[in-house]
Design a binder for these strands. Sequence first.
DNA 1: CGCAGTATTGAAATTTCTCAAGCCGAGTGG
DNA 2: CCACTCGGCTTGAGAAATTTCAATACTGCG
Lengths: 249, 249
Amino acid sequence: MPPHPDPSIERVSELLLSKVALHGTLESADEAAVRKLTPRTRSVAAGEDIVRQGDRPNVAVILLSGMLARYHTLETGARQYLSFHIAGDMPDIQSLFLSVMDHSVCAMNDAKIGALPHDQLASLIRTRPAIGLALWRLTFVDASVFRQAITNNGARSLLARLAHLFCEQYERARQAGLIDGRYCDFPIRQAQLGQALGLAPVSVNRALQKLRRDRLAELRSGKLEILDWPGLIKVAGFDPAYLHLKREP
Amino acid sequence: MPPHPDPSIERVSELLLSKVALHGTLESADEAAVRKLTPRTRSVAAGEDIVRQGDRPNVAVILLSGMLARYHTLETGARQYLSFHIAGDMPDIQSLFLSVMDHSVCAMNDAKIGALPHDQLASLIRTRPAIGLALWRLTFVDASVFRQAITNNGARSLLARLAHLFCEQYERARQAGLIDGRYCDFPIRQAQLGQALGLAPVSVNRALQKLRRDRLAELRSGKLEILDWPGLIKVAGFDPAYLHLKREP
DNA sequence: CGCAGTATTGAAATTTCTCAAGCCGAGTGG
DNA sequence: CCACTCGGCTTGAGAAATTTCAATACTGCG
């Protein structure tokens, strides 16, 4: 008999455990402690904000399905997307330490999330240090991805930027077991890609067409299709090392 | 009598303790444990690399004086600066968890650093969890600064970008007690600013001239001078919240 | 005093953006 | 069942920002 009647609550523990297991070494007591968490799960509609810049959340979110994004809002109202997140990601775990949100998190499509109360997480980390260390490692990986985004926006050509984002997204989906052959979900519109990459929407459109014409990759109705992975990697200058995927001995 | 004959080793503990104290609550046992560390200190010449992309360091660096920078090297050989660091910063503490460096760290001017062996840090964190938590919080702040850089490079005008970098640098120096009136050290050449902001050197030059002409800020011989802080903040759209400076109750 | 590395200037070339119009496909209601 | 409508995608052309290139002026150090 499962510890919780609600299967989506169990899914939270499963996702959290598998994520954490990739970044640390857990004992059975660690696992048991995770399974004692009592998250609340809920659905979020596409476009809806989950937390906003300036908020002081008392829960941390873990994504169960769908895609979330972090973004900044500038004084002008302009939006800069910072990262896109897939099932298993915890985009605002920082709120456990940084009381005021410096960015917002929204849903890019209809999504399901689990909300883990800060106090539960804090005591989990206190009592099971191995979990804390694994989550800390995740924080470092997160930072590495941000660094790569700086480089992407700053030093790569328009085409390479888009290609790099596609590589990253596909590779991360692959790691999470979320690809379907050459496809993965990427429910992002062209205008939003522009807001992620610092480009005008038209420029995104033209770059997408070039990737399509060159038979490298294609984005259509929220699905990313990889047509030529080696070719795409080459155009992007993509080296997955920065994703720090496998825990090393 | 000081625990170490070498005063610069003591400076490591001092800097580390004051940094950590800002991000956590320490007991005297925590402080004692930090003072037991036996870092090696050394000088680094301007331009010299401290760690390189691909390295597997077994120490973490804490900056004692001077300025360090993190940067990516692209396949093309192009360089993207990711962040600039001042005394007290630990730019590669991630190496404790991520065995392979995804970026390099170099000295922008002659600098002094302390090298903390990973095994000492690991056991410090294990035995004194409060220190681990404070360092973890620092990691989150670090990530927040990276996010801001993404937004800076992606969504702000050339002039605002430069102004924002200046605001951030001055504000961080102020926090660290490293300003001298309206001045702070910023030993970065125009070409390097370009490599940080994703701009051509000429564009940096013209933006610098505009900031100077508008009597907002001036960069000369490695010193940043703030001429009009409110004006600069306005142009930059700078809001220091993302630095998460003060630990909240 | 002179060199080497930076900073500055100007003008042309290129990229990227803006604007504006047309297209296309999915969901909708007559 | 099909025209309608809306949002998002595409296209083209002109405008603007940024880069490139190349030449000239600084400046600090040896």
